[in-house]
Every structure is written in C-alpha cells, then in structure tokens.
Design a binder for these strands. Structure first.
Length: 497
RNA sequence: GGCGCCGUACCCAAGUGGCUAAGGGAGCAGUCUGCAAAACUGCGAUGCGGCGGUUCGAACCCGCCCGGCGCCUCCA
C-alpha cells in the first residue's frame, strides 16, 4: 500500500485514487521566461519518478504538467531584449525540453499551455462571477477571498495572519488586500485575449485550475509542485476551483523541497544560480553519464528535504555509480566456477525487489531505494567471487535494470558509461580564472577498442615473459589516454575508459 | 509579527517510539596481485545540536534553549 505525505493534512496517508487502478495527477510546470535551473530539475525529476512508480505499481496514470506561457516575467524579458514575447516563450520551451531530455525526464502525457485554454479560463471566471466569488474592478477581475471560509487550509494560514506581516504593496482598490487577480486588463502593446471584461490576460493562478479541470476533471488525485507554491499559488487554486465547481479539487497535495547552494535558497538575487545547461556544459563527462550522476545525486535525498548542491556531491554520486557500472561490466564476463551462487542470487534479488517496494511505498523514499541497490551490489560482487552462471549474471543485471528504470538509473550499457572522474570546468563565460586554459586543453586522443585490445595483448605477453618494465610502460601509456586496466586472476585483463 | 522546516560519523544521507542507528563518498588496515587497479573483509557515531520531561523504553513524543533555513511578494 502506497503512502504519500499530503500537505493538506500534514501527514502520510494511504493513497486511494478516486477511480481504482487509475491515477490522475497534475504538476505545476514552469513559466518559460529563462533557462531552467536545478530546482526545476528536481521538481520535474521527483514527479517523473512518482509517475514511473505509480505505473510500475500497476496504475494507469494520466500525468498533466503545464507551461505558463503568458506572464509578466515573459513580457518583461521580451521588452528587455526587444523581441516578441512569443519568441521568449518558444526559446525557453525548447531549452526546458532539451534539459529534461538530458536528465532523462520524460514529457508528461499532456502539457497544456495557458494561451491555448482561454475559453476554459474565461468560462471559469464567469462562473466565479455568477456565484459571487469574484468582482470587476475596471477591466480587471478579482477573486474575493472573504467568500471562501476555508481559505488558508493548505498553507495553514489565517487570512488575518497574512495581513499582519505582509510585505505586499496593497492595491487600494481591492475590497480586501488578500484578493487576487483572475483577469488582468492589457495595456497597449501587451498580448490580449477577448473576454466579457474587455481585452486582457489571465492571472497566474486561474490557468492551473482551468487546465487541470479541463484535462483531469473537477476532482482528481494528485497535485504537485515545489514547496514555494503552497502559498499563495496552490491556496488560490483551491479557493477558486472549489468555489467554481462546488466540489473537492485535488485530493493529495505533494510538494518537493528546495535545492540550495551553501544552505541557502538558490536564487538569482543571491547570485548562486545553477542552470541545468551550466552543469551539462561544464561536465567533463558525456551527457548521458552526467545526467545519470545528476539523477543519482538528486534522488539520494528524500524529495521533501532540502538538498544542498555542490560539485563535490555530484562527483560523489558519479563515483557511487562507477562502482555499480563496474559490477555491470563484470556481469557481462564469464565468472569462475559456473553456477555456484544461483540460489543465493535468487534470494538476493527477491530481497531487493521486496525492499524496493517497501521503501518506495513509504512516500516514495528514493534514497532508501538506492541504498537497497547498493546492498545488492555488495552481495552480487561477493557471489561473483565464487562464480555465477551466465543465466544468473543476466538475472542480476536485469534486476538492476528493471527496478532502476523507475528511478531512471542503471539503463546505460557499459560502452556508454565513462569511468573517468566527473569534473566541472570553469564556466565558459568566466574569463577570470584560467578558464580558457581549461576549455582549450585538448582531450588526449583516444585509442580505438582494437588498438587497446592489441596493446593489452602485448602487455599480457610481456607479463608472461616477466617483462614488467614493458608491461608497466604499456599500462602507463594507456592510462595517459584515460584507460584503466584491471588484471584478472587468469592472466587476462579488462579495461575501462 | 504569523506559519513552517532543518540540525544523525570527516562529508553526503536514510531512519521519526522497541532488533547490532541503512546506504554512499573519503580515510586507514588487511585479503588478492609481479606491482597496480578493481573487488572483498575489517575499523570508524555507547550515540543522533544542548538541557529537561513523558515512557518499561526516545534520534524519533512534549517543553525550553542554541544554531541554520524557508514561506508570508514572483519563484520548482
């Protein structure tokens, strides 16, 4: 039985979807006005893994993740650059999709855009007007918070408390400072859609209500997003959705913790901002390998905890993966006395599978799940010393691959993996710290597989002749090209790059 | 001012009432090896920020204190 922490109730609850066997989930995506950063990566990854796990558990999942494609920030950016706002939207939609692909985060089933749901949005606002929850103010329309007696139940705030320390500049025209915009009239030159209240664009919160209801129905199972969205975004979504439909909105509210830098929130104003693009560009490893390391790093902390990013922590994740991929490589090689540990392996795989379900069912604890994989790594390595049949080795690899698929880990082949250290170069645009040297230092020309095999054969011939000087010279030569040699007991060698 | 979160070994981190406090990284020692590398084995918190309290029993519950952070404004 899957248990999920529900922000609404502040506790872990047994997950019971509205319609047995199916899950409808909505996650707040991004406003496409800039490069995506690690925080976006974490949120996207967390809910990607949740979706995978729900499917793995047998649910038919409908996953909706929106793009906010009309918003003040987009317009501001467009004005700064002197380009049409649609160009900003187009550009950052592309970079978001590129970054998600690199992270191995699959698209949602439906990825609606605000600009494509104007009829739903205006219809919903009209319903709120008709029911007395909203009022016009010149060309704008506001939601009247006072009409919702339950307002504040998600974020556990009372409207009175909110006013006490509010740093908001209150628009004096509003009936109540808490009231928020459903519709904003447009100024000259701004994008505008026709509405009963004149040309304008939707407020931020209404689009998520309109689009989630449009694609998932008035009541659905899971609504997710970053912690910071709890208030006011999700609070407002609940208020307007329930007011419009008279029904419960989302049943389970899930929120992921922040990515921090040096224990502080990552933000542009603090200047500690890491874009996903940055990380991939600066990594010394391939995109696939960097993506895996990043995923592993992001998933070794429980999704609700804050997570501190540093180069070192990603390097540690990479090293941890190296030991796993080292095992996968050995699993592709014949091992000693065939067949000895089959029964033990069977038990170990069963144990992993059970433990994986147990910890993932507990509020999808990916950190504990990864620990289970590490436990299996140790067991399989021990069994490999006594010998495993080809069938058992394939079974072990398959256990990592099939369960790992939920986390998006362990999917690469040995040829695709890189055993070299993951290092972060200085940022390409940083000219102050010798970064040009880093950038321009050429990668040593690599050998082809055939060349390596030839040198290895020569080296092992030399070892048989006890010509260790020659053998070590070859090893040094290969090492200079990023190739590591591991000698097996039988006189043959494996190599890694 | 209001609401809330965090503090577990050198570093990261799971665990939130009861088996020896997961797992990873780094380190040290050993096995193996011509030497390495890898793998394996062992070592590593008598204690979970501090002090009290509740309990037969607490890292986990309660109170106070110390330190750090978030939200209350756009924010994943």
């Amino acid at each position: 039985m899957l248990k999920l922490y529900n922000t609404m109730t502040g506790s872990k609850e047994a997950f019971q979807p509205l319609v047995p066997g199916t899950v409808r989930m909505y996650v707040c995506g991004v406003t496409v006005y800039d490069e995506s950063h690690l925080g976006h990566a974490r949120s996207a990854l967390v809910f990607d893994v949740l979706r995978n796990y729900l499917q793995f558990s047998g649910y038919a999942v409908t996953f909706v993740k929106n793009f906010t494609d009309v918003d003040d920030k987009i317009l501001t950016r467009a004005a700064q650059e002197g380009v049409p706002w649609t160009e900003i939207v187009e550009r950052y939609l592309c970079t978001y999709r590129r970054d998600m692909a690199r992270l191995g985060v699959a698209p949602a089933d439906i990825e609606p855009k605000a600009t494509e749901h104007m009829p739903e949005i205006t219809t919903m606002i009209e319903a709120l007007m008709a029911k007395g929850h909203a009022y016009r103010l010149d060309g704008d329309v506001y939601f009247e918070v006072r009409t919702d007696p339950a307002y504040g139940r998600l974020s556990k705030r009372k409207p009175e408390d909110l006013l006490a320390g509010a740093r908001v500049e209150v628009d004096e025209r509003k009936r109540n400072p808490m009231d928020f915009a459903l519709w904003k009239s447009s100024k000259a030159g701004e994008p505008a859609w026709e509405s009963p209240w004149g040309p304008g664009r939707p407020g931020w919160h209404i689009e998520c209500s309109a689009m989630s209801i449009r694609h998932l129905g008035e009541t659905f199972d899971i609504h997710g997003g970053g912690m910071d969205l709890i208030f006011p975004h999700h609070e407002n979504e609940i208020a307007q959705s329930c007011a419009a439909t008279g029904k419960e909105f989302a049943r389970y509210w899930l929120h992921n913790g922040f990515v921090q830098i040096n224990d502080e929130k990552m933000s542009k104003s603090l200047g500690n901002f890491f874009t996903i693009q940055d990380i991939f560009e600066r990594s010394s490893c391939s995109e696939q390998v960097t993506g895996d390391a990043l995923r592993y790093f992001l998933l070794t902390t429980h999704y609700r905890s804050p997570l501190d990013f540093s180069d070192v922590s990603v390097q540690e994740a990479k090293r941890a993966l190296d030991s796993l991929y080292g095992l996968f490589q050995r699993l592709e090689e014949p091992s000693g006395e065939e067949g000895q540990g089959e029964a033990q392996l069977e038990r170990a795989v069963t144990r992993l599978t059970e433990a994986f379900h147990r910890v993932m069912n507990d509020d999808f604890n990916t950190a504990a799940a990864i620990a289970q994989f590490q436990l299996l790594r140790g067991e399989v390595n021990r069994l490999l010393e006594t010998g495993l049949s080809a069938r058992a080795r394939a079974q072990a690899r398959e256990a990592f691959r099939s369960l790992g698929r939920v986390l998006g880990l362990f999917q690469l082949s040995i040829k695709e993996w890189e055993f070299k250290e993951l290092e972060f170069r200085a940022r390409p645009d940083d000219r102050t710290q010798g970064s040009r040297l880093d950038r321009e230092r050429p990668e040593p020309p690599s050998f082809t597989d055939e060349q390596i095999e030839r040198q290895l054969a020569e080296r092992n011939e030399a070892r048989r002749r006890k010509d260790f000087a020659r053998a070590d010279a070859i090893r040094t030569e290969l090492s200079a090209h990023g190739i590591t040699i591991e000698d097996r007991p039988d006189g043959t060698s494996r190599w890694k790059r």
